[in-house]
Structure formats: structure tokens, C-alpha cells
């Protein structure tokens, strides 16, 4: 009875402008349900700049500050300081895409993290510049087709949660739209922690950008976790912990082969069996690092596929 467990109030209203099957839209609904109405969103240039709806209509039932691409973490910094000075406590939440986070927005994010503003920063990662038409970002996975990597991305996805852990922020966590219980627990924990930047990173599948049927968004989100390509975890005050279904995936045998995730997506269609094998090895090595880390007491983070 999901509608009895999770808040029924909608803060992302129907009639928004996300593409059919948008993973980010699912994630955003869950995030806002978890945070409630006393939440200010700061949104840089990204898909959500369009999803929000055309002026003077907005699909958001919370206040939203749209801001230039590189500027969201800085704008949120000033906003939370102002709200605190003016005696109006609230959640200040950046909702930014991967380009606005791992590329052009990284400097501002790093600064805000170092200064320790009491904000929540959420990166919804669809692994490329989707709003501008599927160009490679620093978060595009190895091998993926984009319009600017027509024969596959030669680089490797930046580990942004790891970079944020290195900033020693109080809370870093990963999210998936397929696991709302995990999402709600993490968002509520983040909102309850006063002081310091809380960083959350969600893998949000994109039907047009990843080249798959839009009905598969939740299925792909789930497969990303079940294959171990996307690891659900949290790092609370430096201590790493697997969460949700990822807790059961330390043994390689428990994880589905990455091919099950890759084969559903047109952006990986060109991969050779050797390419897939290489990606499988990368994922397995990451899990070995996670196992080592857990043995050592959980300091540090994992890298995502």
C-alpha cells in the first residue's frame, strides 16, 4: 500500500514537461515527498529547467530559484545563510544534473562543501548532457554512446560521491528511483542533520538518452543496482555503509551480470563481448574495494561504474 506509506501530497504537479518515463521525474517526486513543503529548490541549467513548465506556469509547489549553470551550490549557500539570518528555517536543496554537478558546477559545489553550509545537494545523474541533446559529460560511463562520443566514451565516469566524501561532509549517499524506501530514509536523515552539506547522488535513467523503451526506467534502475553497476550506500560522518539491496551483493555470485543492464540500452549496443567483459571486471574490482573498505571499518567510498 505504497500510497499509505509515502506522503500523498504532490510537490511536482502533473502536467510537467519531463519526457515520458523520465527517471529524474520519478526521483524528484520521491525527493519532494520526503522533504515536504518547507523546501526551497535551487536548480541550475538542466532538464528540470524545462520540466518545471513554461512561464508563468510552474509544475513545482515549492519555491524554486532557477540559476545559471555553474552557480547552484553558491546560490544555495547564500540562500541558507539568508534564511538563517532572517529566522526562517527551511530545507535548501540543490537539484542539479550531472553536467551541472560533476563538470561546470563542481567548483561551486566544492566551495559550498568546504564552507559547510546547511544545505542538501542532490545530483540527478542521467550520465550525459541530456537537455541539450545527449552530449558526453564527466559522468558518462565508459563505453557509452553519446552524440559527442559516437564510437563510445573513452573516458571513465567521475566518482563524485567519492570526491564529496573527500571533502569530509557529514553525509554522502547514493539513490535510485527503484528504491523509494531507501530514498526516503536517506532524505529524512539528510534533512535532520543540522550543519554541513549533505550530498546525494541519484542514478536516473533517461529513455531518449540511453536509448531504451520508457517503460523500462524502473527496471533499469533496479538492474543497475542488482548488477552492482550502481551501489546504494551512505557515508555518515566518514563511515561507509551499504544500504538497501546493495547490502546483499558483496559476493560476486549474488550480482547479476552487467550484460543484463547493458543489453537493454541502445547507448551500449556497439559494445563487443570484450568491452562488456572489461566493464564487468571494473564493476567486480569496485566491489572488491568495497569489501576491503568494509573490512577496514568503512572509511571512504566506492566508485561507480
Amino acid at each position: 500500500m505504497a500510497h499509505r506509506v509515502f506522503p500523498r501530497e504532490e510537490y511536482l504537479l502533473k502536467g510537467h514537461v519531463a519526457c515520458p518515463g523520465c527517471g529524474a521525474a520519478v526521483m524528484l517526486r520521491h525527493v519532494l515527498k520526503a522533504l515536504g513543503p518547507n523546501t526551497y529548490l535551487v536548480i541550475p541549467a538542466c532538464c528540470t529547467s524545462v520540466i518545471a513548465g513554461p512561464h508563468p506556469r510552474s509544475a513545482f509547489r515549492v519555491p524554486v530559484l532557477h540559476i545559471a549553470f555553474a552557480a547552484s551550490a553558491a546560490a544555495a549557500s547564500g540562500m541558507i545563510e539568508a534564511l538563517e539570518k532572517l529566522g526562517k528555517p527551511a530545507n535548501v536543496v540543490v537539484w542539479a544534473g550531472d553536467g551541472g554537478t560533476v563538470d561546470i558546477g563542481l567548483q561551486a559545489l566544492s566551495g559550498a562543501a568546504e564552507r559547510g553550509h546547511n544545505i542538501i545537494y542532490i545530483c540527478y545523474d542521467n550520465e550525459a548532457y541530456m537537455n541539450t541533446g545527449i552530449q558526453k559529460s564527466g559522468s558518462t560511463p565508459h563505453g557509452a554512446w553519446t552524440t559527442t562520443t559516437p564510437s563510445g566514451n573513452p573516458g571513465f565516469k567521475k566518482d563524485l560521491p567519492g570526491i564529496m566524501v573527500s571533502h569530509r561532509v557529514p553525509y554522502v549517499a547514493t539513490l535510485s528511483p527503484a528504491y523509494p524506501n531507501d530514498t526516503f530514509a536517506k532524505l529524512r536523515k539528510a534533512a535532520s542533520m543540522r550543519g554541513g552539506l549533505k550530498y546525494l547522488h541519484a542514478l536516473t535513467p533517461c529513455p531518449p538518452g540511453w536509448r531504451y523503451d520508457p517503460s523500462l526506467t524502473i527496471e533499469l534502475s533496479r538492474l543497475a543496482v542488482e548488477t552492482g553497476m550502481w551501489v546504494l550506500y551512505e557515508v555518515e560522518n566518514g563511515v561507509f555503509r551499504l544500504t538497501g539491496p546493495s547490502r546483499a551483493l558483496l559476493e560476486k555470485g549474488k550480482r547479476k551480470p552487467v550484460a543484463e543492464y547493458l543489453k537493454l540500452q541502445g547507448r551500449f549496443r556497439h559494445l563487443s563481448p570484450e568491452d562488456v567483459e572489461r566493464i564487468q571486471r571494473m564493476v567486480d574490482e569496485n566491489w572488491e574495494r568495497i569489501a576491503e573498505m568494509l573490512k577496514e571499518g568503512g572509511e571512504h567510498s566506492s566508485e561507480q561504474g
Partner: peptide, 18 residues
């Protein structure tokens, strides 16, 4: 007031995309 967008159910009639 003019630069603010207001919460609206149905910012677009997205059912037509189906």
C-alpha cells in the same frame, strides 16, 4: 510578480503526447 511562475496543475497538457 511578472517574473514569477505559479504552481499550476497542467503546466502543459502532456496527455496529448501519448
Amino acid at each position: 510578480e511578472k517574473i514569477l511562475a505559479r504552481p499550476t496543475v497542467g503546466a502543459v497538457l502532456s496527455g496529448g503526447w501519448r
